[in-house]
């Protein structure tokens, strides 16, 4: 049992240990395998293929398992390290300590958006992008998107998702609008005045690699998704009578049959089901 801490409370020694372990995974190639996994399992919902990671109910359990895989690799390097979380409703500025030289480094420079500070700056020689869809071999960011400004989600916006008592709803994809915590927090469902919310908006706010399928190239990915993981806990606590949906495989004739994961169906690439991921009790806790 270990604790995932709020990143703002980490000591500089803890920050150093975390980033050192991440750099070690990069050196061995294990990190780039994780980046490939995320890209491979992004299936958009117009395709009639199985969707596990995004635009589907298993968004939360799939990413929980994915984060655990990363964290186990980190702990094999340094058993004292865990994945910190980033509460983007509170630490919502490009000058937050998260983006300082001693932690993740800051935004990209103008032009090619190259990150110039921190341990993941290309110039430091330890963070070469090998799984990308651009020619950039360096990490890119564009915090707050100054050319077309975007703000991080507010506490009220987050609460709007957490208040929904229904986990997810038909058609179980990015167009599920009738309600559903999952689509509101993943961020495809939004009021007409604003098209993107919560999780999706955070990817956009960071910019650069974080807007694409190879988003985990930016270590900020893990801190963002650790907070998303914590929010699933908060929703469960708030709605003790609600649970993961769909609870059973969809009926014959349902267009989403075979495309989304029900409670007891395995989530590739692992032989684990959403039920296996409903709780992390005994494994880790959030501070």
């Amino acid at each position: 049992m270990y604790t995932r801490q709020n990143q703002k409370n980490l000591t500089s020694a803890q920050k150093k240990r975390f980033t050192a372990a991440v750099l070690e995974l990069k050196r061995t190639g294990a990190y780039d395998d994780l980046v490939r996994t995320h890209d491979k399992y992004f299936v958009p919902d117009r395709d009639s293929k199985l969707r596990v990671g995004h635009m589907s109910p298993s968004f939360f359990p799939w990413h929980r398992r994915y984060l655990l895989q990363f964290e186990r690799l980190l702990q094999a390097v340094d058993p004292g390290v865990s994945v910190p979380y980033w509460d983007w409703t509170a630490d919502n500025s490009p000058v937050s300590s998260l983006w300082a030289e001693d932690f993740l480094g800051g935004t990209g420079r103008e032009g090619d958006r190259r990150v110039m500070t921190g341990p993941f700056a290309h110039e430091k020689g330890n963070w070469e992008i090998t799984v990308g869809i651009t020619e950039a071999r360096f990490l890119t960011r564009n915090l707050g998107r100054p050319q077309n400004p975007i703000a991080l989600p507010t506490a009220a916006e987050l609460q709007w998702a957490l208040d929904d008592p229904t986990y997810d709803t038909s058609p179980w994809d990015s167009t599920a609008q009738g309600g559903g915590f999952r689509n509101k927090l993943e961020g495809w469902a939004a009021p007409r005045s604003e098209r993107w919310r919560n999780h999706n908006k955070v990817h956009q706010w960071i910019g650069g690699h974080m807007t694409g399928g190879t988003a985990p190239n930016d270590p900020a990915f893990w801190l963002h998704h650790a907070f998303v993981d914590l929010l699933w806990d908060r929703w469960q606590l708030r709605h003790p009578g609600s649970g993961y949906l769909p609870a059973a495989p969809l009926a014959l004739g349902d267009l989403q049959r075979g495309r989304v994961i029900a409670l007891d169906e395995p989530m590739p690439p692992w032989d684990l089901t959403p039920r296996d991921m409903l709780s992390h009790q005994g494994l880790y806790r959030y501070e």
Partner: peptide
Amino acid sequence: LGTTQLAFAAP
């Protein structure tokens, strides 16, 4: 993208 180019072959 800023000034960056797409790769010719992407995953």
